[in-house]
Simulated scan of single mutants.
Amino acid sequence: MSGDGGGDGLVIGVDKDTGVAVLTLDRPEKLNAIDLGMAAELADAWREFRFDDTVRAIVVTGAGTRAFCTGIDRDVVVPQPGSPYMVDDPLVAIGPKANDLWKPVIAAVNGMACGGAFYLLGEAEFVVADEAATFFDPHTTYGMVSAYESIYMAQRMPFGEVARMALMGTAERVSARRAYEVGLVSELTADGEALEAAVDCAAVIASYPASAVQGTVRALWLAKEAARAQALTHAPQLVSLGNLPGERQRGLFTGRRPGFRLR
């Protein structure tokens, strides 16, 4: 890959020969958690890809072996309006579909993918994961509503599996094998090989006529867009009404019990 861009937290590589771009969340020391700078970079990257006809397919992944992404950086402070009808979500525009990009996106998952990572997984066409990957949603454990995350996952997994993952919080993690069995993951690889497998898929897709590929992507999302859009309109109010105050959340986070069940 040739490095064609990126800044603090996000690295972008584009192979002009294959038409494949790789976006890497590059904060491994923070388990690739997303701060406000990275959130802005992601939105900018997806919008720029709309105008770059040399990029015909994209892979999104995380640096290191411990995590694909662990959602919002806990050190980020997001001031909120004093009304339950207005909520600022710093992750709401980090995905490709939120930025009107209809080129195919494949997620390559290594290590943990949890919470806000589902904004990215939920807007990818499909997910490739290595055997060591795990998936979980910590929101309820810390007194937070899993609204956007549950809505995104409800488009990709059976209802009962999404409900269990959201409600069990940090007590349980979904293994890559189980995620494959329920349809969240389309391909399992050996440890460390998810990115290569995803890039291989992306290269095949990028070799096809772009207009046909993008039309197919758009058709696929039209099949579920109405229900998804309707659900997402209610997410801000559910978060505003159900979340504990920040101090209570931080107390639950620092006092969390270690250990979890892998299934």
Rank of each mutant, 00 (worst) to 15 (best):
M1W: 04
D4V: 14
D8H: 13
V11M: 08
V14C: 09
K16Y: 11
G19M: 02
G19W: 00
V20R: 04
L23H: 03
T24G: 02
T24N: 02
D26A: 14
D26S: 14
D26R: 03
D26Y: 04
R27K: 14
P28Q: 08
E29K: 09
E29T: 09
K30Y: 03
K30P: 00
A33W: 01
I34P: 01
I34K: 02
I34G: 03
L36P: 01
M38Q: 09
A40D: 04
D44V: 08
W46V: 13
R47H: 05
T54M: 05
T54P: 01
R56A: 01
T61Q: 10
G62W: 05
A63C: 11
T65R: 12
A67K: 02
C69N: 15
T70S: 11
T70R: 12
G71A: 12
G71N: 10
G71Q: 07
D73E: 13
D75V: 10
V76Y: 06
G82C: 10
S83T: 15
P84T: 14
Y85T: 15
V87I: 12
V87E: 05
D88E: 10
D88L: 15
L91G: 07
V92M: 08
I94E: 05
P96M: 00
K97C: 04
N99G: 10
N99I: 06
D100T: 12
V105L: 06
V105Y: 06
V105S: 06
I106T: 03
V109L: 03
G111Y: 00
M112R: 07
A113W: 00
C114V: 02
G116T: 06
L121D: 04
G122A: 06
G122K: 02
E123D: 10
A124L: 02
A124N: 03
D130W: 01
D130G: 05
T134A: 10
T134C: 08
F136V: 00
T141S: 15
T141A: 11
T141E: 08
T141V: 04
G143S: 09
G143M: 07
I151T: 15
Q155V: 03
G160A: 10
G160T: 01
A163Q: 07
M165P: 02
T170K: 06
G183F: 11
G183Q: 13
L184A: 04
V185Q: 05
L188S: 10
A190F: 06
D191A: 11
A194W: 00
L195Q: 05
A197S: 15
A202Y: 00
A203T: 11
V204Y: 12
I205L: 08
S207D: 12
Y208W: 09
P209F: 02
A210K: 06
V213W: 01
Q214C: 09
R218I: 01
W221T: 05
L222P: 00
T233R: 14
P236E: 09
Q237T: 15
Q237H: 12
Q237R: 15
L241N: 12
L241C: 09
G246D: 09
R248G: 02
L252V: 08
G255Q: 11
P258E: 09
G259V: 06
L262A: 13
R263K: 04
R263E: 12
